[in-house]
Design a protein around this nucleic acid. Structure first.
Lengths: 191, 191
DNA sequence: GTCTATAATACGATAGAC
DNA sequence: GTCTATCGTATTATAGAC
């Protein structure tokens, strides 16, 4: 077993955390290097540019999201899958109130200046929207797209509000409401 | 009538626009100066610091929001006030899809690094939340706070999603849904 | 692969002439 | 009040020794 340096992973972990907490632009390479205990100049051995670090962080978020969705997918009832999906924000309540949604806030920041990086981040939201819409469709709803948008807007909106009010109970309230909504939602058709 | 220079207003207008489109940090004083046709060094005659410009922009947004809410307030039925309030995002659909909500996206950016400026921006969202909650209360709903949070999260979430998907129809769909929801919402009590 | 030193640039802010 | 020139600093990125 070849023991290779874990510097790349340390850099990615620190970048992931710092970007969530302070945003992409305000996070400097010196910040990432310091938090990873890697000398500044050495960062460029692992990543060509700062954008490359963000791209790798986004790729990692994509893998995590897909893994979580696959976990939910083990439930046979699509309604139960969506309810299980709510556990993600529910368990991140403090982080959301403190720093916002790691995906949504990054998209909002990067979309202010269109770039390949911004497109890559937007894909994270689009992927989640696609998955939840698929579940509503599996429930037999012919308004699955509307319901998917409705669920995703609620999740993103509660993050913005919880962050602005610095109040994690906004997450609690909205998750509880969404759970109740999903539970009582008619399984077939529209209305 | 003393005709004074309108440079300060030009600077504020340009800053307001540029901050919405590109964010606060990415917007440079040189950008604001150029868009206002004011020499860079002259900016400091009107504003001591860059933060002071943002503070003035936020103050202007606050005045606009209060004026709009007072306009809605002319309706006697609180339900009609809330429906009128939906006209604000409805008429800004393209700008929201292109740059996000001017208030929400600014809060998300500034909250990444707590400061007096961030608190000032958060107040804009808190003010709106307070106003819509007040309307639900005037309808006789004892769950007015929950409904207020629900409405504000929907508005903020649709902006995040419309921006990430670069799709103004997300705004159309959500505004239509909220209008229908408000229209059929029972005027008294809970459920 | 690792690290120090530094180049190159961008930006907020100021000095000072007019 | 207005404007040019510029300072000081922060930050991305590179050069080059080890």
């Amino acid at each position: 077993m070849v023991r290779v340096s874990d510097k790349r992973e340390r850099l990615l972990g620190a970048a992931r955390d710092l970007i969530h907490r302070h945003g992409f632009k305000p996070t400097t390479l010196a910040d990432i290097a310091r938090a990873s205990d890697v000398p500044l100049g050495n960062v460029y051995y692992y990543f060509k540019t700062k954008d490359d670090i963000a791209a790798a962080v986004i790729h990692g978020r994509d893998a995590e999201l897909r893994a979580f969705m696959e976990g939910c997918q083990r439930k046979t009832d699509p309604r139960e899958r969506l309810i299980a999906y709510l556990e993600m924000p529910a368990t991140s309540r403090e982080a959301i109130a403190a720093y916002g949604c790691p995906v949504g806030s990054l998209c909002q920041e990067l979309d202010k200046d269109p770039s390949p990086l911004a497109q890559q981040a937007n894909t994270l939201l689009a992927t989640q929207l696609g998955w939840v819409t698929e579940q509503f469709r599996a429930m037999g709803r012919n308004d699955a797209e509307d319901l998917g948008v409705q669920l995703m807007t609620s999740l993103q909106g509660m993050s913005v509000l919880a962050n602005a009010l610095a109040d994690p109970t906004v997450v609690d309230r909205e998750v509880a409401r969404l759970r109740a909504w999903l539970t009582t939602l008619s399984p077939i058709g529209e209305i």
